[in-house]
């Protein structure tokens, strides 16, 4: 196994080990923290496909995170009120089933990513950042001004949604579910990076003219990557809403987009497990420093500054060294 492989294994063992320990000594709050880290890592894994592999700095991934959250909120709120979402022309009921909610969240986020991507990928660089930001803000203000689903106050879901065969109200079981999805997403993104699609996307980031000259379309590669990226971040949004049993427009805010970027940069851009390291560190800092001061973001800012100035490969990149050239 490569050095990065060992680091990834250690990292994942840590993210799984802490809540298992907390479960043994009956510290449910620590399990919740670890669940939060796993879900935010999942959002980062999504962004990493666009940002790391594709070089697409999206400042609008909160849109997909929020869409996932609202997919859960809307379906579950109708189910808990026994009030169908629509009656004509066909009857659509709400649901409290996680697999159905995930499917809807992923599909809705992918669709949004397709539309947003098709428009914003015609630009690049700073314009791309600004357009994705603008789309994110559109969703944010739309959510605020949509009274049917709580407007500014958001939506509360009283009981966590169910998964066949599991008691999702038990923190360790819900953690297990989130962690399993994180592992699946990591496996997918690791395979993707080495697959033909990843190779071509990575080349399109470096030399788009070359990719076009061999007959492949950089635009289509980026669009597909953006859709996959948005879909995974949307799934994370649905889980995040379920963790908090609450959805609010904050999930759509540009700060959320910024935080997802921070996970990726802290952990290591284009490193498979970079977002896991970044999100885990973020949640740990939030918890430890947040107890000391409301202004804990100052310290996060200092750490981010140190990473950007002295450790460009992020946590995973610095520990694992270069070693990206394989086979």
């Amino acid at each position: 196994m490569s050095r990065e492989g060992w680091i990834n294994a250690l990292l994942l063992a840590g993210v799984a080990g802490v809540p298992l320990w907390a479960w043994a000594v009956d510290e449910p709050f620590t399990i919740t923290l670890a669940t939060r880290a796993a879900i935010l890592a999942l959002a980062g894994v999504g962004l990493n496909i666009a940002l790391g592999l594709g070089g697409l700095v999206s400042l609008g991934h909160a849109a997909f995170f929020g869409i996932g959250g609202y997919a859960m909120g809307i379906l579950a709120s109708h189910a808990q009120a026994y009030d169908p979402i629509m009656e004509a022309p066909i009857l659509i009921q709400g649901t409290k089933s996680m697999p159905v909610i995930w499917l809807v969240a992923v599909a809705a986020a992918a669709l949004a990513a397709l539309v947003i991507g098709a428009l914003s990928l015609r630009t690049s660089g700073v314009y791309f950042i600004m357009i994705t930001l603008a789309f994110g803000q559109m969703f944010y203000f739309f959510a605020i001004s949509w009274p049917a689903y709580g407007g500014e106050d958001g939506l509360s879901i009283y009981v966590r949604n169910g998964f066949p065969g599991l008691n999702t109200l038990d923190p360790i079981q819900f953690f297990g579910l989130c962690f399993a999805l994180l592992l699946l997403a990591l496996l997918f993104s690791a395979r993707l990076a080495k697959a033909p699609f990843g190779l071509a996307l990575n080349a399109a980031r470096q030399v788009p003219t070359r990719v076009a000259t061999v007959g492949l379309s950089p635009f289509r590669l980026r669009l597909v990557a953006f859709v996959m990226s948005g879909a995974i971040t949307g799934l994370a949004g649905a889980l995040f809403a379920d963790l908090n049993r609450f959805v609010s427009p904050t999930m759509f805010s540009w700060q959320t987009s910024g935080e997802i970027i921070v996970f990726v940069i802290l952990g290591g851009v284009a490193r498979t497990c970079g977002p896991v390291a970044g999100a885990a560190l973020f949640v740990a800092l939030e918890h430890v420093l947040g107890d000391l001061s409301d202004y804990w973001h100052i310290y996060l800012g200092l750490i981010l500054l140190a990473v950007v100035l002295f450790a460009r490969g992020g946590i995973v990149g610095t520990l694992a060294g270069r070693g990206r050239a394989h086979d």
Binding site: L192, F197, G198, A203, R210, L216, R324, D327
Partner: peptide, 28 residues
């Protein structure tokens, strides 16, 4: 693609010759 290996650059051409790069699972 300067970050990639020589072989990866040549495989990119082979992907173009195949007419598509939308496979996501099997290593290229």
């Amino acid at each position: 693609a300067m970050e990639d290996t020589v072989l990866q650059n040549a495989v990119l051409g082979a992907l173009g010759a195949r007419g598509g790069a939308f496979r996501v699972w099997r290593p290229a």
